[in-house]
Amino acid sequence: MPHDHHDHLSPSGHPYRADQDAPLTYWQTMEIAMRELLVEKGVTTHEEITAQIEAMDRRSPADGAQVVARAWCDPAFKAELLRDARQSVIDMGFELGPMNLIVVENTADVHNVIVCTLCSCYPRNLLGLPPDWYKQRAYRARVVKEPRKVLSEFGLNLPDDVQVRVHDSTADMRYIVLPERPANTEHLSQSELETLITRDSMIGVARAKAP
């Protein structure tokens, strides 16, 4: 069943990657073999694999945006989120699995940004899978030494009197940034606020969008 996706964009606006119809690669062959062996050995089932893919596909930055928007609107929730992010997020109904979570708050004086210099640790069980650049050398190598320059490449230019705090996810914690609530949003509902909160603002390479 050939499909030509090459001229089309996915719902999220990115080009489709060559997939089902591209020539089979060595590593794809290994993935298929590994998967079938795991099923034959009784380690997992096709249904369990599909369920895991669907569970990961359901996670997205929109989930994190719900957490952030609630923190903007509910001071008691925000205090609890900063104290125990994992429990606060679980209490909202999100399934974090074993992931430990810390939320770091941006203010008028402090800007936080998240990285994993050693590999690609990311709050995937809340935000879904990471963007490619998060896993690549340029971001991992540079953001711990020249965060302001890296942020400027994302279009975020911070004044000198704002302290930058970089968080390197070196062990068991995962992080999201609680971005600052934009000005002139007092009239917006919590669900309207959610639309201002992007993936990049929760990694810390952007601010929340202006209304």
């Binding site: 711990v144 302001r148 705090r165 062990a171």
Partner: peptide
């Protein structure tokens, strides 16, 4: 961490050790 090469000396870095 970076001495004279620091982009902004008062910025900070947190890591789990």
């Amino acid at each position: 961490i970076w001495g004279d090469e620091a982009e902004n000396p008062g910025d900070t870095l947190d890591a789990e050790i």
